[in-house]
C-alpha cells in the first residue's frame, strides 16, 4: 500500500476559526475572499486565474470536513437532547459494550485512528486484520480501498496533545 497523504506540513485545523486564520496568514485577505467565494460558486471561481487551485481545494476540503463533523455531531446530539435519548444512547452504549467485550476490536479501532493520523504504518493494520482473520474478506478490502489505501505514514499527528501546547498557527 502506498500513502496518498498530502506531503505539505499543515498544522492540524480543529475549527472554522483556525481554518480562516490559517488561510488569511497564508494567502492574505484579498485572495482568501476570492477563495471563500469559490465555495459558493465553484466553477467560475476555479476559472479565476487569480486563484491557486491548490488553495481552493485545500480550503474547500477542510471546510467540508469541519461542516461534516458539525453536522454528524449535531445529528447525534440533537437526538440526545430532543427527548429521544434512547435512539442515540443505545448505539453508543452497544458500541461501548462491544469495545469492552472484544479488546481486539478496540485495538483495531485505535489502530485505525492512529493510521488515519499518520502515526502508524499500514502494514500493522494488515497484520491486525490478518490476525483477526478478516484480511482476505471482500468486505475488509472494500473498506480499506476507497482512497487507495488507509493512510500510511511516519509523522506523529500529536492527536492527544492539547491545542494549547501546539505552536500557534
Amino acid at each position: 500500500m502506498t500513502s496518498t497523504a498530502p506531503q505539505e506540513n499543515v498544522p492540524p485545523i480543529k475549527s472554522h476559526a483556525e481554518l480562516d486564520h490559517y488561510m488569511l496568514e497564508k494567502y492574505g485577505e484579498e485572495k482568501f475572499a476570492l477563495i471563500k467565494e469559490s465555495v459558493k460558486n465553484q466553477k467560475t471561481a476555479m476559472q479565476n486565474s487569480k486563484l491557486n487551485p491548490e488553495a481552493v481545494r485545500f480550503y474547500t476540503t477542510h471546510l467540508q470536513e469541519l461542516d461534516r463533523k458539525g453536522e454528524v455531531h449535531k445529528k447525534w446530539y440533537q437526538k440526545l437532547w430532543g427527548g429521544v435519548k434512547e435512539t442515540v444512547k443505545a448505539p453508543f452504549r452497544a458500541v461501548g459494550w462491544a469495545f469492552r467485550k472484544h479488546p481486539i476490536l478496540t485495538t483495531l479501532g485505535l489502530t485505525i485512528l492512529a493510521i488515519v493520523g499518520g502515526a502508524y504504518m499500514t502494514g500493522n493494520l494488515e497484520a491486525l486484520l490478518s490476525r483477526i482473520g478478516v484480511a482476505h474478506l471482500d468486505a475488509a478490502s472494500k473498506a480499506a480501498a476507497p482512497g487507495g489505501a488507509i493512510m500510511g505514514g511516519t509523522t506523529n499527528p500529536e492527536f492527544l496533545v492539547p491545542p494549547i501546547d501546539k505552536a500557534p498557527l
Binding site: 497523504a5 492540524p12 480543529k14 482512497g147 487507495g148 488507509i150 493512510m151 492527536f159 492539547p162 491545542p163
Partner: peptide, 23 residues
C-alpha cells in the same frame, strides 16, 4: 485518505487523557 487525514487534525481526543497511554 485525505479527508480522513484532515479529520485526524480536527480530532480533539486530548479531552480524554485516558486514551493517551492506550494510543
Amino acid at each position: 485518505d485525505e479527508q480522513l487525514h484532515i479529520r485526524a487534525g480536527m480530532a480533539e481526543l486530548h479531552r480524554w487523557p485516558a486514551l493517551k497511554p492506550l494510543m
